[in-house]
């Protein structure tokens, strides 16, 4: 289970920052003053470190890193 979560979290950044790009390449809706494409990049900047952080906590708790 833990392995699966780590695998999903490890794939998510690539999906968001590469795979999704052709689909988010648009101006509207404008969110938080940013055109949608740039809002998406901004979102990635927040979500990817959260993924990294969760992986870090999971690996710590299973003791695979010291």
């Amino acid at each position: 289970m833990r392995r699966l979560i780590i695998a999903i979290l490890a794939a998510l950044p690539f999906v968001m920052m590469l795979g999704a790009i052709p689909f988010v390449n648009r101006i509207h809706p404008i969110i938080l003053g940013l055109p949608f494409f740039h809002f998406w990049l901004f979102l990635g900047m927040i979500i990817v470190p959260i993924c990294t952080y969760i992986i870090y906590r999971l690996q710590k708790s299973e003791g695979s890193i010291e």
């Binding site: 690539f14 920052m17 990049l41 990635g44 993924c51 992986i55």
Partner: peptide, 20 residues
């Protein structure tokens, strides 16, 4: 134009894979 923003996914991916 927005081609310049490749720097954002680039650095995000760079740091993410560096973790491993």
């Amino acid at each position: 134009g927005s081609l310049a923003f490749f720097a954002i996914p680039y650095t995000i991916i760079a740091f993410f894979i560096s973790y491993f």
